[in-house]
Design a protein around this nucleic acid. Structure first.
Lengths: 255, 255
DNA sequence: ACCGGATGGGTGGTCGGACCAATTATGTGA
DNA sequence: TCACATAATTGGTCCGACCACCCATCCGGT
C-alpha cells in the first residue's frame, strides 16, 4: 500500500523537503494525484496512516493541516479525513503553482498582465471611490520621488498597480493581481524589469504612463484607462523582450 | 502582548473556525497584518508563544505549518520562526482569497474571465501541441454528449476551458484559469449558470461556441480564436445578467 | 417487522513530557 | 582581542494519555 512509497531516498526532492511533515505532504499529494484516493474517498485513520508512513501522529497531523488549509483534504471529527471533491484539481493547482513559481517564463507573465491590467484600469475608472483615488495618488507620488532620486521604484510601481486593482472593486481581479505581483517578486522578473527600467528614460516613461492612466481613471474614462494601461503593458513588454534578446534568453523560448 | 487577542469570543468568526489551530492561524495573521510582526522579524519561540496563547505546542505547530506552507512564515531550526519578506502581502493574499471565495460577485468573475479566456484561446491557437488538440476535442465531445442527452454539461464545459488554458502553454494563464475554475465551483455560480443554460437552446449555443473556438485554434487563427472566445464570454454574461435580473439580484449590485 | 434510542468502538483534537538536531550566545584560555 | 568549547535556546519528532464527536450495531418497544 503506502509502504512502497515511504522509502526516504526517492521521496525527498530537495534538501529543504527533508522534513518529515513536508515529505508526508508530498506523499499524500502523489497518492491523490495518482488516483489512489479519488475525490470523496477517505484516507486511512491518522493512527493507521502514521504507522504505515512510520512517522508520529503529530508529524502526520502537521502535514494534514497543510493540505486541509489548501482545500485538498476535508477533516471531520469522529469520522475521518476525506479528499475534497475538488481535491484533485486543488492538488493539480498546488503543483501547478509550484511549477509556475519555479518555471514560468517572463513572457508568460507579460501576457497575463496584458490581459488583466487594462481591465483593472477600466473597472477602476468606473468603480473607484475617493479613498481609492487618494491611495493611487500616494503610490504614484512615491514612485515619482524614487524615480527622480534615481532609486529603485519597483515597489511603488507594483503598489500603484495593486492600488488600481483595489480600486476596481472586483475581488476576483484583485486576487489575480495579487497573485501576479507575487510572481513578479521572483528574482528573474525583478532583475529583468530593473534592467529594462535602466534603459534611457524608461523609469520616467513608466511613471508618465502611470500618471496618464490615473488621469483617465480620475476622469472616469474607462475606455481611455484601458487603452493607456494596455499601452503601458506593451511598453513593458518591449523593454523585457529587449532585455531577453540582449541577455540571450535566460529562459530560452520557454513555456 | 498576545494575551489581549487570546480571548476566544472575538477571535472566532464562524463555527468551523473554532478549532485551536485555526484560531491560532487567524491570530498570527492578524498580528502580521497589523504590523506587530513586520517582515523579517521573528515570532516568539514556540514554547513562549504556546504559553502566551494558552495552547499546546503541538496545536501551535500545526498552525505554523499552515502559514509556513503558505509562504507567510520562514521556520529555521535552532533559530526561530520569521515572517517572510513577502509575508505581509501573502497575508493579504490569504485574506483576499478568503474574502473572494466568500464574497465575490458573479459579475466580478465574468469580468475576469472575459479578460483571461480570450487570451488563453489566442495563445492556444499559436502554442498548442497535437496532444492538446486531442484533449480539447475529447472534452468537447463529452460536452456534446451530455448536452444532447439533456444532462448537465458543466463539468465538461469547464474542462474545455481548462484544456484551452493548458494548450496555451503559458503557466501563468493556466494557474489563473485554475483559480477561476475553482471559484466557479462555488454554489452560486454553478446555479446561475445552470439556470442560464436552461434557457432555450443556451446549452446548444455554448457548445457551438466551443466548437467554433476549437476550429479557430485548430487553424492556428489566433485573432479569430480570441474573438470567438470573447463572444462566448459575452453570451455567458448576457445569460448571467438575465438570470440576475430575473432572480432580483442575490448579490445586489455588489462589488 | 420496523423504528428509535442507547451504547460501544473508532475517529480526530489537544495536551504534556521527553529527547534529539541545529543554532546562537557566553565563557574561558591563549 | 580572538578563537574555541560549552551551555543555552531554538525547532523537530515521538509517545502516551485523555476528551469530544461520529457512526454502526444492538436492543427494546410498538
Amino acid at each position: 500500500m503506502l509502504d512502497q512509497v515511504v522509502q526516504p531516498k526517492n521521496v525527498f526532492r530537495a534538501v529543504e523537503r527533508s522534513k518529515v511533515y513536508a515529505s508526508v505532504v508530498d506523499q499524500i499529494l502523489q497518492n491523490i494525484q495518482s488516483g489512489r484516493f479519488p475525490p470523496g474517498s477517505s484516507l486511512p485513520s491518522e493512527r493507521v496512516l502514521a504507522d504505515q508512513l512510520a512517522v508520529s501522529r503529530g508529524s502526520l497531523r502537521e502535514a494534514i493541516r497543510v493540505l486541509e488549509h489548501a482545500g485538498v483534504l476535508d477533516v471531520r471529527v469522529g469520522s475521518g479525513t476525506y479528499v475534497t471533491e475538488g481535491g484533485r484539481s486543488q492538488t493539480a493547482m498546488l503543483r501547478a503553482q509550484a511549477a509556475v513559481i519555479g518555471e514560468h517564463s517572463p513572457l508568460d507573465l507579460i501576457v497575463a498582465r496584458a490581459a488583466i491590467e487594462p481591465v483593472c484600469a477600466e473597472q477602476a475608472a468606473t468603480a473607484h471611490h475617493p479613498t481609492d483615488l487618494a491611495h493611487m495618488e500616494a503610490t504614484l507620488h512615491e514612485q515619482a520621488e524614487l524615480t527622480h532620486q534615481g532609486k529603485d521604484p519597483s515597489a511603488a510601481d507594483l503598489a500603484f498597480h495593486l492600488a488600481v486593482a483595489t480600486a476596481s472593486h472586483n475581488g476576483v481581479l484583485l486576487a489575480i493581481e495579487q497573485n501576479l505581483i507575487e510572481l513578479m517578486h521572483e528574482q528573474t522578473w525583478s532583475e529583468l524589469k530593473h534592467r529594462s527600467r535602466s534603459r534611457v528614460h524608461a523609469a520616467e516613461q513608466y511613471l508618465e504612463h502611470h500618471e496618464l492612466v490615473l488621469g483617465a481613471i480620475r476622469r472616469r474614462d474607462a475606455r481611455r484607462a484601458h487603452q493607456l494601461m494596455a499601452m503601458h503593458m506593451a511598453a513593458i513588454e518591449v523593454g523585457i523582450v529587449a532585455e531577453l534578446e540582449r541577455s540571450d534568453g535566460p529562459n530560452g523560448q520557454g513555456s
